[in-house]
Each structure stands twice: as C-alpha cells, then as structure tokens.
C-alpha cells in the first residue's frame, strides 16, 4: 500500500532548509542510533530492507512528527521485538 516514505512528487512539504554547518549528527544519541543499526545489520539480526520496511510501517502521524533518527530508533525497536530479541516492554526504560 502507498506508504508515507514515498514522497516523490507530493506537494505540501515545507521549504528546503540548508543548515549553515550541516553536522552529521545533531546529538550524541543520533550517532549511537546510527551505529546501533549498522551493528545489528552486520550481525544479521535484520537486513537493510527490513529496516526500511519497519520505518515505512510506522503510524503515519508518528512518522511525520518524528525526526530522521527518531524514525530509525523506532524501526530498530520494532524489529528487535518482531525478531524476538526482546519484548516491547524490555525495550523501554522502566517507569516507576
């Protein structure tokens, strides 16, 4: 089915913003998410297409509200749960 990642030709997105310094990551956690994904793919926990698929399956409103690496992290947690590595509860910081 048509998915929210498939935006070629769509109207309604905001103007293109160029950052002056264009850092590769905007926070340490983003670099960690990037490296975590590479490590899990290299280990064969999932493959790159499964990773893209997991991002595309995020609820549309959540997808659009999320930043680039927030989408990555959501997809990683989705796949770790689906692959049986951990339960969804285990993948979240416990709340008291």
């Amino acid at each position: 089915m048509s998915r929210i990642n498939d935006v070629g030709g769509m109207s309604g997105f905001p103007a293109i913003i160029e950052e002056p310094d264009e850092p590769p990551f905007h926070a340490d956690w983003e670099a960690h998410v990037f490296a975590l994904n590479g490590a899990l793919i290299k280990r064969g926990v999932y493959n790159l297409d499964e990773f893209r698929d997991a991002q595309e399956r995020l609820p549309v409103q959540e997808y659009l509200a999320a930043s680039y690496y927030e989408r990555w992290f959501a997809a990683i947690r989705t796949l770790l749960a689906e692959k049986g590595v951990a339960t969804p509860d285990e993948l979240h910081v416990p709340h008291d």
Binding site: H32, A39, E70, F73, E90, H92
Partner: peptide
C-alpha cells in the same frame, strides 16, 4: 533529547547483556 538518550542507552545495554553488541 535527554529522554531519548536514556532510551537509546537502555536498548544498547540490553543488547550488550544479550551478547548482540
């Protein structure tokens, strides 16, 4: 950012404990 940092660290620690990292 600090909330998601904590979540990412949590997942990393979990994967380390399970030998996946």
């Amino acid at each position: 950012s600090s909330l998601i940092s904590a979540e990412v660290r949590h997942v990393e620690a979990l994967l380390e404990s399970r030998g996946l990292l």
